[in-house]
């Protein structure tokens, strides 16, 4: 079993190496990720959002609904951690007081 998974990992490594040939060069200004939507963000951010920090403008304004979802995920993870670790406790332990 271990040999099979090792062979699979080696195979996957070569797939990743092969796929790297199709990716854009590092620092190429005309690569696909830098040509479609991001120039519009950079050019229009100050007019529309009045905020020089484009990352904040994208995060909180253009994609604010997405960030709302992310915040809910973080909150849910925090609640889940607390609930997992405190389930099955006696009532007297739940007051947050220790020793």
């Amino acid at each position: 079993m271990r040999i099979v998974s090792t062979l699979l990992l080696i195979f996957f490594t070569f797939i990743v190496f092969y796929a790297a040939a199709g990716l854009p060069d590092v620092g190429d200004p005309n690569s696909a990720p830098s040509t479609h939507v991001s120039p519009r963000y950079i050019e229009k951010a100050y007019e529309e959002i009045h905020s020089p920090n484009v990352v904040t403008a994208v995060l909180a304004d253009y994609r604010g609904y997405d960030t709302l979802g992310e915040t809910t995920v973080i909150f849910t993870a925090g609640i889940a951690t607390v609930l997992i670790l405190r389930a099955g406790h006696k009532k007297s332990d739940q007051g947050g007081k220790r020793e």
């Binding site: 007019e47 529309e48 959002i49 009045h50 905020s51 904040t56 403008a57 909180a60 304004d61 604010g64 960030t67 709302l68 915040t71």
Partner: peptide
């Protein structure tokens, strides 16, 4: 109208 956006951004950043 765009000058209102930093206010809203500040509000949600406080929440985050």
């Amino acid at each position: 109208e765009s000058e209102l956006h930093p206010l809203g951004i500040l509000g949600i950043e406080i929440g985050v």
